[in-house]
Amino acid sequence: MKLSPKKALTRPVTRYGLLALLVIVWELSGRFNLVDQSFLPSFSETIATTVVMFQKSFLFTHTMVSLTRVMIGLCLAVVSGTILSYLLGRVLPSVGWTLEPLFRVFGLINPYCLFPLLVVFFGLGEAPKILILAWVALWPVFFSSLAGLKDIDPALLQLARSMGASKIQIFYKVIIPATAPSIFNGARIGVEMAFFILIAAEMTGATAGLGWIVHNAGALYQVSRIYASGLIIVLLGFTINRFLIFVRDGLFFWGRASLSGRDSLLPQNRTRISPLTLKAVTLTVAVVIGLGIYQIIMAEAKLNDPTVIPEYRVWTE
């Protein structure tokens, strides 16, 4: 689509205008002391704090720790949710039908209530945090996949059967492609909720991660650190959201449009991504997970390092 010169100029202005205005108002209110500086440091100060935190207090480690927890939790949820839904929706439909109300109630259980319980069982390490994320993301994936299974066009199954496809072939050629978009939609809802809960879980019981920084900064009244880590949290959430939309439009382009209302504002652009891009994306994700696991392992030692400025060390109650 070729834009006229005038539109080419006004489009970016309208697109980024309101956000830029918000940032400018934020900056000016700090500069001219319209709001108490100790409650709302200016935008530039927040950026400066972020840079300092990256240099001195392992903000990168915390970010990677949070990101990796979400990714591992999501992977667990997708794998177990998909297997469970295939088992209950396809292999043993009568059992699935009987147990569905029970699973609905499980899905409604407040994950926050579960967290103390998981801590009782799994201690204070990584396990309860990742499991709580997996639990939160599991139910959207499970129900979405179950609904996808129910929605499979019976004509497709009949067609495959009449052409002599074996059960395994039907599974690979029909069922998996037909349910993949719904599983992905479920995973998208799941990852959003998981990210939500992650920050909370890190606030109540963790010694690393973005939620921990916010909590720690709040307790120590380091207001600019709250805003700096908040900036990173918003950026990370935004990136994850955009990445998932990119994957959905590129990989699951045959599926139905998204379920969540807020996407109605986003441009719909569904074209298959090239194999090369796919490889690059897969590689990036693998590298990020690898790096994250390394950071989780290193986090404890790094954050407890006595040579680090005390202010940035692990804060204990």
Binding site: R11, T14, R15, Y16, G17, L18, L19, L22, F195, F196, I199, A200, M203, G211, V214, H215, A217, G218, I226, Y227, S229, G230, I233, V234, G237, F238, N241, R262, L265, L266
Partner: peptide
């Protein structure tokens, strides 16, 4: 559409737990 798309997306990413502290 164009004007609100980005700000709404960013605002809805504001984690309530983070906001709680602020």
């Amino acid at each position: 559409e164009l004007l609100l798309e980005l700000p709404l997306e960013v605002l809805s990413q504001l984690n309530p737990f983070l906001l709680f502290h602020i």
